[in-house]
């Protein structure tokens, strides 16, 4: 007897769980041949709200974690991704990649994780500073993560765009709510499974699938989203995000995917805190230090 294939249910990822969308809606994106890829959750704004709640809850613990430990966890994601390479390649090919391109995309994603895992305990030293001031203060500036960051992942890739937009942001201690590519969503759900099995605490990365047109405004106006990284590629929407995000002085960045290996992408999602610590002159002729 012929065996029935067990098809995967693509669900969203919120707070370390895989729920279906609260709305019960779905859509079926097609590949180049017009075949439906799968039934994909069409997330609603309530899903977004739930995801932000989960991300906020996870933020404190993730931000306070030792930077070195965050690096270890990022490396662990790379390990898990490498182990699932075949699955990702298959999904990428289903969505229209050639085998060679698919393999390259998975390798690039894995390598990028390793790259940022190295940066996790180094960016702070690079970007923080001791500032010369004209008074008896030890004045220093250090980076602190912004909080909950909304990410609209790039449309044109299923895996690499997603990974390259998420990873720098969480490397810096932020938690994220991501809207996956509308046309190519398969890898996003599978990547959530990778995250789920690689020591990333639940809620640090939350992944939704659905339509940018429905959720963009919510990303912009939600008072508990501190920053947005927009990879959708539509200049009008980017400006709209900036306009609507003014109520809570949201930081809005455009993601063009041009340069993905770059520590400045971590620094973008950091606030600089400067401290004035009263002390004797340091290094001056009267100093005892």
């Amino acid at each position: 007897m012929e065996r029935l294939e067990v098809l995967k249910t693509y669900k969203i990822y919120i707070g370390g769980q895989f729920p279906r969308t609260e709305s019960g809606r779905y859509y079926d994106p097609k590949n180049a041949q017009g075949q439906a890829l799968a039934n994909i959750c069409l997330s609603s704004r309530k899903d977004l709200r739930n995801a932000v709640v989960a991300a906020r809850k996870a933020f404190g613990g993730w931000a306070e974690r030792a930077h070195f430990n965050r690096g270890q966890i990022l490396y662990r994601i790379a390990e898990m991704l490498e182990g699932r390479k075949a699955q990702f390649v298959e999904e990428l090919m289903k969505q229209g990649s050639t085998k060679a391109a698919a393999e390259k995309e998975v390798d690039q994603s894995t390598d990028l994780l390793v790259y940022y895992s190295g940066w996790a305990d180094k960016y702070q030293q690079l970007f923080s500073s001791v500032n010369p001031v004209a008074s008896s203060h030890f004045n220093f500036s250090a980076l602190e993560p912004m909080g909950v960051v909304g990410i609209v992942a790039p449309q044109d890739t299923s895996l690499f765009g997603l990974v390259s937009s998420i990873i720098p942001v969480i490397t810096g201690g932020n938690t994220v709510v991501v809207l996956a590519s509308e046309k190519l969503p398969l890898c996003a759900v599978t990547f959530a499974e990778v995250l789920n099995s690689s020591d990333v605490p639940g809620g640090v990365v939350n992944i939704l699938t659905g339509k940018e047109s429905e959720l963009l405004e919510q990303f912009a106006t939600h008072m508990d989203i501190n920053a947005v990284l927009y990879g959708g590629g539509d200049a009008k929407n980017y400006i709209r995000l900036k306009e609507l995000g003014t109520d809570n002085v949201k930081r809005v960045f455009n993601f063009d995917g041009a340069e993905t290996e770059n520590p400045y992408l971590i620094a973008d999602f950091q606030e600089v805190k400067t401290t004035w610590h009263p002390i004797e002159n340091i290094g001056g002729s009267t100093s005892t230090y």
Partner: peptide, 10 residues
């Protein structure tokens, strides 16, 4: 009232 989801910060 505002249509925007709120944050405990405020």
């Amino acid at each position: 009232k505002t249509g925007a989801y709120q944050s405990a910060d405020y």
